[in-house]
Design a binder for these strands. Structure first.
Length: 579
DNA sequence: TCTGATCGCGCG
DNA sequence: AAAGCGCGCGATCAGA
């Protein structure tokens, strides 16, 4: 492998392709244009971590199909990398972005059938199931793993596509691709570190609410007692409260006229059975979703290790698989607990989405309302007679497309005060209804309408037309929300990436030592919230890093704007102490 | 007995 | 107090 290229005294960025090879892996240097001065180096799987660690000294950008294929193994071997380009995630963005819609790349990439056997096509499909023990029935794979030439070709094609984007949009798109790739690394690193979780504390919570762990197939004592009580109160000795059908029949027999068994509807009734029923539902949820079985399945060695799916939501948000990582209930957050000598730093971007909307729409009046820490209070003062809850409902209604109820009624009032902000989401809704796509700040576009949707819009009969209109409005609500949620996801990705960079720098600043990590570690991310697990001594520096990263993200997305994106930071021992 | 849809609820 | 976005997941239920 050649020395780090140096030009005019400035270090040039080195790109290293990393691809599968029959003998393990192939590594090849390349430049931004995709040409390579040397032959690939073939490395055995067992040697890979050492080789990669050595090459990392050149601070290259690693180009791979999916971070998920390579990075977890490297992390397990103690290798952390600085930057990468995740072709698979970037492909998905470039295939649908309006910024690249004019390119041949997008036309081909958006057609999954075109290159069925490049292996790269998996970018557009769900990832393959985890390797199964059932290798006997392995389907003959017609999509081979992409080799180093495939990787290079894809990288070159992506670079070409990005280069052809108009000035202004190009920089945003480059930022999005870099942030998305950084997210892929962060997700792998979080999976590796896990969320600090004290099983004992979790079990305490379960015992307190449910009683001791029941035998398999049985309800815990607290649920059993409530079930008995409900059967008596509803005169239904065989009632299964877990069955909505069974339950609704029993409720009707007792004169409780509900159309569903949702809690908000049940709360309307004053029947003596409602209290215990709501209690049953609450505890049942705890038992089935985050009870002992969950603890067995997902927590080990004091860590909760979920799987994050970067780009798993079309808007750019992360999704997760297994363990419901993005739905940790408030009820059990007490089990998320810092290690001895450590703290959890929990930070969230206050009212991120409405602030993003104000910046997107460049609404001066709403920017003014956002001057203080509490945007909803600002909006309330300007147009809702100081009523914060009304202001919040109106704002959420604007971003989600509410038409009825209080939220819908408040919309005209909001539109009068903030014509630009409301106009922005209204335009996005009209675009969606007309079948057009919409785009986030950094260039992630909503998917085009499906064939079925387009067919429905050409319907003729009155009944069909009515349904088609409903579908159009539904798509309008989606695109209306997409511009806000997607741009907020853009902001959050930049925040994460900037924070990761700063935390790495803190580590480097510390006294040297083998395997030393005292700069604080990102352990959790939830749309607009991050959690850093840090030694107490590092807490102040980590808090600064979080705040600086937020300011950096704001500047990266919007440049100089008269608008702040404040983060609220809590330094705590356990997650339930935050907020 | 298995599979996919539906309900309901957790999170932002 | 209650209808409008995005998700994952477990239990139940309908249909094969």
């Amino acid at each position: 492998m050649p020395e780090t290229p140096v030009t005019h005294g400035r270090m040039m960025l080195m790109y290293l392709l990393l691809a599968a090879h029959p003998q393990g892996a192939a590594i090849q240097e390349t430049d931004a244009a995709g040409s390579s001065p040397a032959e690939p180096r073939i490395v055995a799987k067992t040697e890979l971590p050492a080789v990669v660690r050595e090459l990392e000294n050149h601070r290259p950008r690693w180009i791979w199909n999916r971070a998920q294929d390579w990075y977890p193994t490297l992390l397990a071997a103690g290798v952390r990398l600085e930057r990468c380009h995740d072709l698979s995630l970037c492909r998905t963005i470039l295939a649908f972005s309006e910024f690249t819609a004019h390119t041949a790349y997008a036309r081909e990439a958006a057609q999954p059938s075109v290159d069925e056997d490049s292996g790269l096509i998996r970018a557009l499909a769900p990832p393959p199931p985890p390797a199964d023990q059932d290798a006997l029935f392995e389907t003959p794979s017609h999509s081979r793993e992409p080799g180093v030439e495939d990787i290079r070709a894809e990288f070159t094609a992506q670079q070409d596509a990005v280069r052809s984007v108009a000035d202004g949009h190009r920089q945003r798109l480059q930022l999005l691709l870099a942030a998305e790739s950084a997210s892929a690394m962060i997700a792998a690193e979080m999976q590796h570190s896990g969320v600090p979780w004290q099983e004992g504390l979790h079990e305490d919570i379960l015992r307190r609410h449910l009683g001791p762990r029941p035998a398999p197939g049985h309800r815990p004592a607290a649920l059993e007692a409530l079930c008995t009580e409900l059967r008596t109160l509803l005169n239904s000795p065989k009632l299964n409260p877990d069955s909505p059908q069974d339950l609704i029949r029993a409720l009707h027999r007792n004169g409780i006229e509900v159309t569903s068994t949702r809690q908000w509807e049940l709360k309307e009734s004053a029947h003596p059975a409602i209290g215990p029923l709501l209690e049953y539902k609450k505890l049942s949820r705890l038992f089935t979703a985050n009870g002992w079985a969950w603890l067995d399945a997902w927590v080990s060695g004091g860590r909760f290790r979920p799987e994050y799916v970067v780009g798993g939501v079309v808007s750019g948000r992360w999704a997760s698989r297994g363990g419901g990582a993005l739905q940790i209930p408030k009820q059990i957050r007490g089990a998320v607990h810092a290690d001895p000598g450590h703290k959890l730093i929990v930070a969230d971007a206050a009212q991120l989405e409405p602030r993003v909307l104000a910046a997107l729409a460049q609404d001066p009046k709403m920017a003014e309302a956002a001057r203080g820490k509490d945007l909803y209070a600002g909006i309330a003062a300007q147009g809702f007679g100081g009523d914060r809850s009304k202001a919040k409902i109106a704002m959420l209604g604007a971003m989600y497309g509410a038409t009825t109820g209080e939220s819908g009624r408040l919309m005209p009032q909001l539109a009068r005060t903030y014509p630009r902000a409301v106009g922005y989401v209204e335009q996005a809704a009209r675009d969606g209804e007309a079948g057009r796509t919409v785009t986030s700040r950094l260039g992630r576009s909503s998917p085009p309408p499906s064939e079925r949707w387009l067919r429905s819009q050409r319907s003729t009969t009155a009944e069909e037309q009515r349904r088609a209109d409903a579908l159009a409005r539904s798509r309008g609500r989606f695109t209306r929300n997409f511009v806000v949620q997607g741009s907020a996801a853009d902001w959050a990705s930049c925040w994460l990436a900037e924070l990761r960079r700063r935390l790495r720098a803190l580590e480097a600043d510390g006294a040297p030592g083998p395997g030393r990590r005292d700069g604080g570690e990102l352990v959790f991310f939830l749309h607009d919230e991050v959690m850093v697990h840090a030694p107490e001594a590092a807490v102040p520096a980590c808090v600064r890093a979080i705040e600086e990263a937020a300011a950096a993200a704001t500047h990266l997305l919007f440049g100089k704007v008269p608008l702040e994106f404040p983060v609220s930071v809590a330094v705590v021992d356990s997650y339930d102490q935050a907020k």
